[in-house]
């Protein structure tokens, strides 16, 4: 058994243990109801997401990228169901799907420059044209906003995981650990509701910063980062995850997703996926330019 454990890269083990701890907390607290009832589902999502990160780190790239493309496809599909656009914008939706292979190809090759050029040219110049081509009807800007936002979150941000797969061993798993560490306090405190005292929000963000910062400080070295860089990456990820939470709740409020439906089904999947991938570009570019 110990030989088997020794063969597993240490960061994969750390990520696995982090998911197990969070999952156990989620399952135990989930029975209490209230905002805790979403925790088992969140833990389940992380089991799959951590599996994807480990696959991206260890498996052949052609196989792991197919899984990544599958996640992006599922995210986009759910997004356009929860936030529908005008029926006439079918071509824009199709473009959002087609963007997946087009964006993943440079990520597969590890060509950051090509990736950074492909995203704005392909997505942000072609999708508005496709939305505008349709018959004249009301809601063009809203529709364009919805399409671009979905593409931004679930194609652009998620594709950064593919770029992270090219980083030195352990850094993509570290990303998983940091996001999980940043999310856990926030999930435990629950979504911010009108009338709730502000200290809860502050408590959530401070908790995320402390846990993620400490995790970065502790684990950074084992991924080839100096201690300070690990801690800074943790703090950046925690802040970005807090931002993702704010955006996710604002989008849910705008789409009138509330009550029990916020904890289950498609809206819950989007919320979990959005917070999991939102910090990927920040983390990637921090490592690329500053660490």
């Amino acid at each position: 058994m110990s030989e088997f454990l020794q063969q597993i890269p240490s960061m994969d083990l750390v990520l696995g243990i982090a998911v197990l701890i969070s999952g156990s907390i989620g399952v135990v607290l989930g029975r209490r109801g209230g905002h805790f009832r979403g925790l088992p589902g969140w833990a389940g999502f992380w089991l799959g997401f951590a599996g994807l990160l480990i696959t991206l780190a260890l498996a052949p790239r052609w196989a792991s990228f197919i899984l990544l493309a599958g996640l992006m496809f599922a995210q986009i599909r759910v997004y356009f169901f929860v936030a529908p656009v005008r029926p006439s914008d079918r071509w824009a939706i199709l473009a959002a799907y087609l963007a997946i292979p087009l964006v993943l190809y440079p990520a597969y090759l590890g060509k950051t420059g090509m990736f950074m050029a492909a995203v704005p040219v392909l997505l942000f110049l072609s999708i508005p044209v496709l939305v505008a081509i349709g018959p004249r009807s009301e809601g063009l800007l809203d529709s364009m906003g919805r399409t671009l936002l979905g593409t931004w979150f679930f194609v652009f941000c998620t594709a950064h995981l593919g770029l992270l797969a090219h980083k030195p061993a352990g850094q993509i798993e570290l990303y998983g650990v940091l996001v999980l560490a940043a999310e856990l306090p926030r999930r435990l405190i629950g979504p911010v509701r009108p009338g709730w005292p502000r200290y809860r929000v502050v408590l959530g963000v401070v908790g995320s910063l402390l846990v993620a910062g400490a995790a970065g400080l502790w684990l950074g070295e084992s991924c080839g980062l100096v201690e300070e860089d690990g801690a800074r990456a943790g703090l950046l990820v925690a802040l970005t995850v807090a931002g993702a939470g704010i955006v996710s709740h604002a989008v849910a409020r705008d789409l009138e997703v509330k009550g029990a439906s916020g904890y289950v089904g498609r809206p819950a999947f989007l919320d979990r996926a959005m917070t999991a991938v939102y910090a990927a570009p920040v983390y990637y570019h921090y490592l690329d330019y500053f660490a």
Binding site: F80, R90, Y97
Partner: peptide, 20 residues
């Protein structure tokens, strides 16, 4: 609900989506 967005009448190409 949802099928009308994937492949409605008059459209040649279906677009992936979800159905409830």
């Amino acid at each position: 609900s949802g099928a009308e967005r994937i492949w409605p009448r008059g459209q040649v190409l279906p677009v992936p989506g979800s159905i409830d």
